[in-house]
Design a protein around this nucleic acid. Structure first.
Length: 223
DNA sequence: GGCCTTCGCCAGCTTACATCA
DNA sequence: GCTGATGTAAGCTGGCGAAGG
C-alpha cells in the first residue's frame, strides 16, 4: 500500500467516514467530547487537559506531567543540537519525515505492526529520530490502516444493502404482477393445473407432480 | 490469594502545522 | 498572495494488563 492509497482513503469527506466519526462521538464519552462541540473547539488541548486531570488519579497526573516535561526538555535539547528542526524554538514545530525515513518505517510496519522497546530504539537510531517519534508514527500508521479497513468494510456493506434493496423491490413487483394475474379471468388457463396442487391450504390428496418450469417454485407457493 | 498502586502501551480523539489545488 | 481542503506528526486521555508491595 503506497502513500497515494492512504491519502485517498483518509479523506473524511466521504459519507462513510462522517458516519463513523459521528457514531463514535455519540457512543464513547471521551474527555474531549465531554464538553461538547463548543468545548472542543474553544481552547483545544489546554481545555482537554484541565478536564482530564479532574478525573485522573494523583499518581497518573504526576506521571503525565513528568512525561510532558520530559518531552519538552527533549524537544528543546533537539532544537539546541541543531537537528532537522529549527533551533531554539519552544513552540511545537511540525517535523516532516523524509522519504527515506517514511520508506524504512513502512518496510518495518510491513514486517510487524507493533514494536517492542528494543526494535523501537534500534529503528529510532537507524532513522536518527527519537524513539517517541517512531512510536507515534506506528500508532498513527495503525490508525490509518484501521480507518482504511473500516472504509472498505463500509463500502462492502453499502453495496450489500443496495443489492438487497434492489432484490426486495424486484420481488415486490413480482408479487404485484402475480396478484394481478391471479385476479384476471384467464389465470387458471395460464397456469398448468398441476401447479395448483402445491398450495398447502389446498393440499388435500391432490396428485402432486413436480412443479412445472412455467413458473419458478417461489412464485408457485403463495399467490 | 486478593487488593491496591504504578507503569507502559495502545486506541481513539484532537490539534497544529505543512502542503496543495 | 489568499483560502479552504487534506494529510500527518504529535498531544492528551482512558482503558487494560503486568508487576510489585
Amino acid at each position: 500500500m503506497d502513500e497515494k492509497d492512504l491519502s485517498l482513503s483518509l479523506s473524511l469527506g466521504s459519507s462513510c467516514g462522517q458516519f463513523l466519526l459521528s457514531c463514535r462521538k455519540d457512543a464513547s464519552p471521551t474527555a474531549a467530547n465531554v464538553g461538547g462541540v463548543d468545548g472542543m473547539n474553544r481552547s483545544g488541548s489546554t481545555n482537554m487537559r484541565d478536564i482530564g486531570e479532574e478525573h485522573e488519579s494523583p499518581s497518573r497526573t504526576k506521571r503525565r506531567s513528568a512525561e510532558r516535561e520530559e518531552r519538552e526538555t527533549e524537544a528543546s535539547a533537539a532544537g539546541k543540537a541543531g537537528s532537522d528542526e529549527e533551533e531554539g524554538e519552544t513552540t511545537r514545530k511540525k517535523l516532516r519525515l523524509t522519504r527515506e525515513q517514511s520508506a524504512i518505517l513502512e518496510e518495518s510496519f510491513k514486517e510487524h505492526t507493533t514494536l517492542n522497546p528494543k526494535q523501537k530504539i534500534a529503528l529510532a537510531k537507524q532513522l536518527n529520530l527519537r524513539p517517541r517519534q517512531v512510536e507515534v508514527w506506528f500508532q498513527n500508521r495503525r490508525a490509518r490502516t484501521k480507518l482504511k479497513q473500516t472504509e472498505v468494510d463500509c463500502e462492502f456493506l453499502k453495496r450489500c444493502c443496495e443489492n438487497l434493496t434492489e432484490e426486495n423491490r424486484r420481488l415486490q413487483r413480482e408479487v404485484l404482477e402475480l396478484r394481478a394475474l391471479k385476479r384476471s379471468p384467464h389465470f387458471y388457463m395460464q397456469v398448468p393445473a398441476t401447479t395448483l396442487t402445491l398450495c398447502p391450504s389446498c393440499e388435500k390428496g391432490e396428485a402432486s407432480e413436480k412443479p412445472t418450469a412455467s413458473l419458478p417454485f417461489r412464485q408457485q407457493i403463495r399467490l
